[in-house]
Each structure stands twice: as structure tokens, then as C-alpha cells.
Simulated assay, not measured.
Amino acid sequence: MEHVHLFVFTFLLSFIILPTVSAHLRQNYYHRTCPNVESIVRSAVTKKFQQTFVTASGTLRLFFHDCFVRGCDASVLLTSPESMAEKDSPDDISLAGDGFDTVIKAKAAVDLDPMCRNKVSCADILAMATRDVVALTGGPSYAVELGRLDGRISTKASVKHNLPNPTFNLDQLNSMFAFKGLTQTDMIALSGAHTIGFSHCGKFSKRIYNFQRGRAVDPTLNATYSRQLMQMCPRIVDPRIAINMDPITPQLFDNVYYKNLQQGKGLFTSDQSLFTDLRSRATVNLFAANSTAFQQAFVVAITKLGRVGVKTGNEGEIRRDCSAVN
């Protein structure tokens, strides 16, 4: 049992020793220029969420994709008449329109306040909206660090090799997240966002059809679950059909995602590898058994994610229109 106690001690210690907050980000950043910004954004996000649940997973995924590519600078929101922006990349083209619409509506609500007009960045609005959708689906509410500027560059080419692939193993995941300053525990906690996410058949079909020579189905998949996936995703089917990442509680931000991994019900290879690899299994087991530990780890991880590649000074601007540079 000694190694178990050591693991738990080390894990809890990670919450105490937080990385230094970016000098340019702080809570209540807009307390003088737009004191009501958080309540304005929360109200707009809540209204959008009540209209469609996809708002939650769409906004959360949008924040992750934005931060991982060029840093948290809202570059994923920029459009290009030649379809050469980040959002036009094959890895981003499946981002839910409701995520973009959430930021647009929140930005419009903020700018209706004369005191706030053109004073709050789209990047910060996306960060606040992400916190709000997590809370609206039953997850933790947390203080958001603000002060990001919006980037002026968005290219399709910059997306490639900057986002995790559904086929990644633990080493590949750790390598990509470490490059962003995130630990294995951060990565496992952020993967828990798949508790409210969804995907399309083409992203995992190889796991249920033609997995390997001599094996039709990935053996790490739960047999009953794989049959269910085959029913929802037959060989010849519209690849755009959406499948819940969490088949048990898809509309709750909870720790059931990790319980699913224990039962072989991770939709992606990258999900299931968190349990099949002994180096990460203990953390999965902890999060599955302790919802508070998961939520605390998630807050730590998404706060660190929000510090990646922050633009300041001449590096960015506050966009008047989130989809176009000023």
C-alpha cells in the first residue's frame, strides 16, 4: 500500500504547487473597464445553452483547439475568403457551429454595454464562455484568468501536427501536451472533457472494422459496446453521424468518462490508452473513484491551458468582430 499512498500524496501536491501565473493574466482583469463582463457573458452563454446542448461541448472543444494551435488568441474564430484559416483545416472543420455562435452572441452582448464596447477580447470571451458551459453541465465553476489579446494570424497549415489524434498512444499524448507545458495528469484531466463531447463514425471506425489482420475489432473495446457502435455506425454510413463520447451520461460533466475507460468503453484509442497503459491507469482509477479529485485536476489543467501562447502588447489586438482582424 505504500506506493499507493505515495501516489496520492504526489498527486495532491500537484494542486498545491501551481505554475506561476502569466504576468499578463489575472482574475478581475476588466474590473475597471468592464466590471459586469462575467455576468454579461454568463447570461448570453446560458441563453444559448438553453437553446441547444451542443453549445457546451462545442464551446469547450473550440477553446481547446484554439489554445493548442497558436495559443489562446481566438485565431480559430478568424475566417478567410480563400478558406485558408484554422477553421478550414480538416482537423477543425468538424468544430460545432454552436461553439462559434456562442462566442459571437456573448461578444455582441458585451458590446451592447457602452462601457465595455471593444474593450474585451474575443479570446477572453471564449475563455469565460468555456468556464460557463462546464458549470452549466454540472462541472466545476472556477475563476478565469483574463487579459489575453486576439491574434491576427490564422492559417490552415498551422493546425496540422498541433492537435491530438484519436489514434495516439500515451507517449504521443504526453509528448504533445508537454510541449504546451501540460503534465500527464493535466492531459488525463482535460481528456475528461469527452464526458460531454461527441465524435463522428469516421474517427473511430477502424477500431470496429478491420482493426488488424486477424482481428476485426480492437480487443481493448468492450464487446457489448463495440456491437452498439457497429449498429450506430455500419460500414457504409454517413460519416458525419454524431456519437456521444460518453454513452452513459452524455449531458453531464462528471467522472463517468473514467468509469467507462475501466470497462473498455473509451471511444477513441487515445481515450482507452489512458487505462490500458499502466503508467496512467492509477490516475484514471483515482478520477473514476473520486469526482472531487477529477474536478480539482480539471480546474488546474484548464487554467494552465488558458495560459498557452497568450498574446500581449503589439502581438495582438481587441477585435471589433471576432471573425476578422481590425
Rank of each mutant, 00 (worst) to 15 (best):
A135L: 07
I17K: 09
M1D: 08
M245L: 13
D111A: 08
G264Q: 03
R117N: 10
A96M: 02
M187W: 07
K156R: 15
L62S: 03
S57N: 04
A109M: 06
H65D: 14
M128Y: 09
Q262R: 07
S291C: 00
V21Y: 04
V308T: 12
S22F: 00
D186C: 09
M1E: 04
T20A: 10
L149P: 06
D186N: 15
R207Y: 06
S80A: 13
V308R: 13
F53N: 02
K107Q: 04
G151A: 11
Q231N: 03
A44H: 03
P19C: 06
K265D: 07
H200K: 11
E2P: 00
K47Q: 09
S273G: 15
L229E: 00
T167E: 14
I93H: 04
L77Q: 12
H31K: 14
F49N: 00
N326G: 09
C72G: 08
G138M: 10
E86V: 06
A242L: 05
K105N: 09
F275L: 04
N165Y: 11
N255A: 14
F275V: 04
F177P: 03
A106W: 05
G99D: 08
R227H: 07
Q212C: 00
E2C: 01
P219M: 01
S75D: 13
D277I: 00
N165T: 14
F204N: 05
T283L: 10
M128F: 12
F294W: 10
M176V: 13
F204S: 00
K180V: 05
A289W: 03
R279V: 04
F198L: 01
G316S: 09
S158N: 15
I236P: 00
M230W: 03
G309T: 09
L126F: 07
S199L: 12
D218I: 03
L229W: 02
K203R: 11
R26D: 02
V110K: 06
K87P: 02
I153R: 13
L286V: 01
Q231H: 09
S14K: 03
H24N: 14
P234G: 06
G309E: 10
T59P: 08
F204Y: 15
A56M: 10
I93A: 12
Q231Y: 00
L261T: 04
D238K: 03
T130I: 09
H200A: 01
N290L: 02
S270E: 07
E2M: 01
Y30A: 04
I93Q: 10
L136Q: 04
Y209W: 05
L163D: 11
P234Q: 00
S39Q: 15
M232I: 01
R215L: 15
P19W: 02
R227P: 00
D91N: 12
I302S: 11
T102H: 08
R281P: 10
P19L: 00
K156G: 01
H24A: 05
R70Q: 15
A242H: 02
D186Q: 08
N314F: 14
I40C: 08
A44P: 12
I17G: 02
A293Q: 02
L60K: 08
K47R: 14
F63Q: 09
Q251A: 06
K87R: 15
K87H: 13
T59V: 07
L267M: 14
A216P: 00
A189N: 06
S226L: 02
Q172W: 11
V159E: 08
F275E: 01
S191M: 15
H24E: 14
F9A: 13
V325D: 03
S121F: 11
I302K: 05
E145N: 06
